[in-house]
């Protein structure tokens, strides 16, 4: 699959298979297009070449109606949570159910409370999004994302900006929900430890290509120099610490151009 923004290539022949029923982590440095990849899978962006298949359907050949039908079986947790700010926690979680089904309010109430219970926030149903901490907002967004019992769940940087306790909660929720609801999960992240701890399979992407792939243990034993630098968080290596510059001594002695 190929995708570019203007002259800048984001994906240059990326080929990724997401195993059904498992948690797949897609990792790479900031700005490598991980979020873009999720938007391509969700049909919010269109690839320049190639295709994205979900359950055998080419996402970008579907009509708008068919695409929305497919999205009912997809869930996405946005990095910001993206809660609707004019609705409280209960109504946020109820939103996709109300919009896509005709369930009576009594059934809907049970469903919403069950989803909130699964993320540990049943007691917070009446709070407004502005009253939630970052971690709580993300858990509410997670409850909302699984409201329609999706087959495919996508997580966009779910661990960013969270304290260690909340991070651990989200990590365990992703794994538990994936197994309990028999979902397929894609976790896009650059938090190596957290993503490795729950992923069955890992793709490392950089410069528009898949650089490495394997199970977390495989990657730890048999990874390329670039992958090792990324996974171990080394400051220097194939990705140099220094931005290209003229000779340091020349520069200091006034011979350079800076």
């Amino acid at each position: 699959m190929h995708f570019a923004r203007g002259d800048r290539k984001i994906f240059d022949g990326v080929d990724i298979t997401i195993p059904q029923g498992q948690v797949t982590a897609i990792m790479g440095p900031s700005g490598t297009g991980k979020t873009t990849l999720l938007r391509l899978i969700g049909g919010q962006l269109k690839p320049d070449r190639g295709q994205v298949l979900v359950e055998g359907q080419d996402v970008h050949r579907l009509s708008l109606r068919e695409l929305y039908r497919l999205r009912r079986r997809m869930g996405m947790l946005f990095q910001s949570g993206a809660l609707l700010t004019d609705l409280n926690v209960f109504d946020n979680v109820a939103f996709p159910i109300r919009e896509n089904t005709r369930l009576p309010e009594s059934v809907l109430r049970h469903l919403v409370l069950m989803k909130l219970e699964s993320v540990g926030l049943r007691g917070a149903w009446s709070l407004q999004p502005s009253e939630l901490s970052g971690g709580m907002a993300r858990r509410v967004a997670l409850a909302r994302a699984i409201a329609l019992d999706p087959l495919l769940m996508m997580y966009d940087e779910p661990f960013t900006g969270l304290d260690p306790i909340t991070k651990a909660v989200i990590v365990s929720l992703i794994r538990r929900l994936n197994d309990a609801l028999a979902m397929t999960s894609i976790v896009v992240s650059h938090d190596v430890a957290e993503a490795n701890s729950i992923a069955d399979w890992v793709y490392l992407i950089s410069d528009g290509r898949v650089v490495d792939q394997g199970s977390p243990s495989q990657l730890q034993q048999d990874a390329s120099a670039w992958s090792r630098q990324f996974l171990e968080g080394l400051p220097d290596g194939p990705v140099p610490f220094h931005y290209p510059a003229p000779d340091y001594l020349d520069d200091l002695m006034g011979g350079g151009q800076s």
Partner: peptide
Amino acid sequence: ATEQLSSMEMMAVDPFKR
């Protein structure tokens, strides 16, 4: 800007209608 419209699309809700 806060991705609320994007999240609606991903919840199979058309922001144009809603």
